[in-house]
Design a protein around this nucleic acid. Structure first.
Length: 600
RNA sequence: GCCCUCGUAGCUCAGCUGGACAGAGCACCGGACUUCUAAUCCGACGGUCGCAGGUUCGAGUCCUGCCGGGGGCACCA
């Protein structure tokens, strides 16, 4: 087969790695006794070949055979069964080095390019998944602490959705704290206070700043004036008892805040909207019932007047057991009750079968207790899983929690503005050929992309160091590197006579240079990488993959001219490789929530 | 005190769920722009994988114990 037609092939193209695994598994089945015939071939990418199979080493022990001899017999069976489709070499103590044919590599490029969705399947189909993330507090400004939950949560939501999951994004807004008594009382007593968007000239982004100002003023009065503090506390009770006038002010506070959050989400390119808002308050009506169910089931017991759930292995400094407090001794509810109510509601009413909480690592113990309680209640079962997708803190360049020079909290909007400003300045130093308004757009895509990539590219569970200087240096392993690689591909493709999407015939019997081979093999790994990220919930694996792909592309770019290739056949093959790589980079970046400019 | 988490090159980080000599980026040094965008590429330099044991044919990866950093541990979220 020298040519592959461009007819659209259905998604879920098997990768060369998977095909290789199948082939080696087939050979093993022919050689091994039945009880070991289904063993994992242990296929890994290799520095010594396209792939390596390591199974013989561990299996030889069980068989009492010599690893090299076992590997050799697997190799023989593999050669017989696949009729030359693999180069097989025995190496070291019993590794099998496997090389696929050039024809197979080009075929794979053609097949992925011609298939829908780059051959990515939908393994998450049937999973109704909640991703809870961002969750800022009403009447407070989003700060650097909201960065990771928002960016990681959004990336996971996009990725799982792409793989077929039915994803429900949930923004668990902090809209029911005791601070509302204070705020509402203050507004009541100071009708002139300016905190609405309409009170400001500077636009939506100023709204929460104004609310923040309101918060500070109210707080100051609360601390200074005991009489006001009393009224504020009474106002909490009034609010919670459902007083309509108080609720009206509360609703307006929520609405004003949400406007400001939306402006940030739009600026960040985060896919949250008001329809994903499900604040703590929306679960109020379930709390009595949830607490009663916990109490009646016997899962919870009364201790010091509070409804508690205890755990054998969770104790405090004195060795006493530490409970999850479902209902406080004064009859009120904390966030444990709310979280239990969300679980019950999502599972029972929304028929969700997977719950992801993108919340900071310090909450680990809380979620452990909440999930264990939900299991005892029978809400979480073997078929319904809940995962705390925890993440580390954002640290400043000094290795301490990221603060302003004055020691205050870093406003998210300021951090983003600075990243965009630096990106703009950086672009202006380059020969960029962009018009003024396009420059502004690209500056934003690059600056925001840099922030997101920096956040997503290190392992989720660790703290990460946020160094603005390093992040926007725009060289090396950064978001801009990926965006730049993509623009170089687009630049080549735009110059094609038939346009960027020109259909080309792939000659699978064409030559295959080392940098072409490396690039093609990596492009083929896109789908398995996405599956791996969905399994581990670790977006940094996708970042690492895309960086490798971009790097392989630039190496190919240096070594292999596309438009001026020696022959038309060679040019067409390279165009196909560019199209596949470009589409893969664009899709991968999209799933991370990072924009892909056409030029920069 | 108990639990969780982290410790890899001067700095910032990967290391594909146990595989061949530990890899990137930044910084520093030396090269490459009349050639599809040099926001790039090539080369050099750089590591007792915190320490000590153990399991294994094989350990940065798994287990145990230390050392060091961070976090959490009864009515705040």
């Amino acid at each position: 087969m020298a040519e592959v037609s461009a007819d659209v092939v259905s998604a879920d193209v098997r990768s060369l790695e998977e095909l290789t695994r199948d082939a080696v598994a087939g050979a093993m089945a022919a050689v091994l006794p039945p009880e070991l015939a289904g063993a994992d071939p242990v296929i890994r990418r290799s520095d010594h070949a396209d792939f390596q199979a390591n199974a013989a080493l561990s299996l030889a022990k069980k068989l009492g055979a010599k690893p090299r001899e076992l590997a050799d017999s697997i190799a023989t069976a593999l050669r017989e069964q696949t009729a030359g489709r693999y180069g097989v070499e025995l190496a070291g103590p019993g590794f099998l080095n496997l090389t696929v044919t050039d024809d197979a590599v080009w075929s794979q490029v053609a097949t992925r390019l011609a298939s829908d969705r780059l051959g990515v399947g939908t393994p998450q189909l049937g999973r109704r998944t909640v991703v809870e993330y961002s969750s800022p507090n009403i009447a407070k400004e989003m700060h650097v602490g909201h960065l990771r939950t928002t960016i990681i949560g959004d990336a996971l939501a996009r990725l799982l959705e792409h793989l077929g999951a039915d994803v429900l994004r949930q923004n668990h807004l902090g809209d029911w704290g005791t601070q509302f008594g204070m705020l509402i009382e203050y507004i009541d007593e100071h009708p002139d206070a300016k905190w609405r968007a309409s009170d400001l000239d500077e636009g939506d982004l100023g709204t929460v700043s104004a609310l923040d100002g309101l918060y500070r003023l109210a707080r100051a009065e609360f601390d200074a004036d005991p009489e006001f503090a009393d009224k504020a506390r009474r106002r909490v009770v009034t609010l919670q008892s459902g007083d309509e006038a108080t609720l009206a002010v509360w609703r307006e506070l929520v609405a004003e805040s949400e406007k400001a959050f939306q402006a940030i989400y739009d600026y960040l390119g985060v896919s949250l909207t008001s329809e994903h808002s499900a604040g703590e308050s929306s679960y109020n009506r379930y709390l009595d019932d949830v607490a009663a169910e916990v109490e009646q089931s016997g899962v919870g017991v009364i201790s010091d007047g509070a409804l508690c759930v205890f755990f054998d292995d969770i104790t405090n400094a004195d060795g006493n057991p530490v409970p999850l407090i479902v209902r406080k001794s004064d009859g009120g509810y904390g966030y444990a009750a709310t979280d239990l109510a969300t679980i019950r509601y999502r599972i029972r009413d929304l028929k969700i079968n997977r719950l992801l909480y993108v919340v900071g690592a310090p909450q680990a113990l809380h979620f452990r207790m909440v999930f264990e309680t939900a299991r005892r209640m029978g809400w979480l079962t073997d078929d319904v899983e809940a995962v705390h997708v925890g993440f580390g803190n954002v640290l400043g360049p000094d290795g301490k929690p990221f603060k302003t020079r004055a020691g205050g909290t870093v406003r998210l909007i300021e951090l983003l503005d600075e990243a965009v400003a630096r990106a703009r300045a950086e672009i202006e130093t380059k020969p960029h050929m962009l018009e003024v308004d396009e420059l502004e757009t690209v500056a934003r895509q690059a600056g925001i992309g840099a922030v997101k990539y920096a956040d997503l590219s290190t392992s989720r569970t660790k703290d990460y160091t946020f160094d603005p200087d390093r992040m926007v240096s725009f060289s090396g392993n950064t978001g801009v590197y990926l965006q730049y690689a993509h623009t170089r591909i687009r630049s080549i493709l735009r110059k094609l006579p038939g346009g960027a999407d020109s259909e080309v015939k792939v000659r699978t019997d064409g030559p295959l240079a080392p940098s072409e081979r490396a690039l093609a093999l990596l492009a083929d790994q896109f789908a398995p990488t996405l599956v791996e990220v969905a399994d581990t919930l670790e977006p940094h694996r996708l970042c690492g993959y895309l960086f490798s792909l971009a790097k392989a592309f630039t190496e190919f770019y240096e070594a292999c001219p596309v438009l001026t290739a020696e022959t038309d056949e060679l040019r067409d093959n390279r165009v196909a490789l560019c199209q596949l790589t470009g589409a893969t980079l664009a899709e991968g970046l999209r799933l991370l929530g990072i924009a892909t400019p056409e030029r920069m």
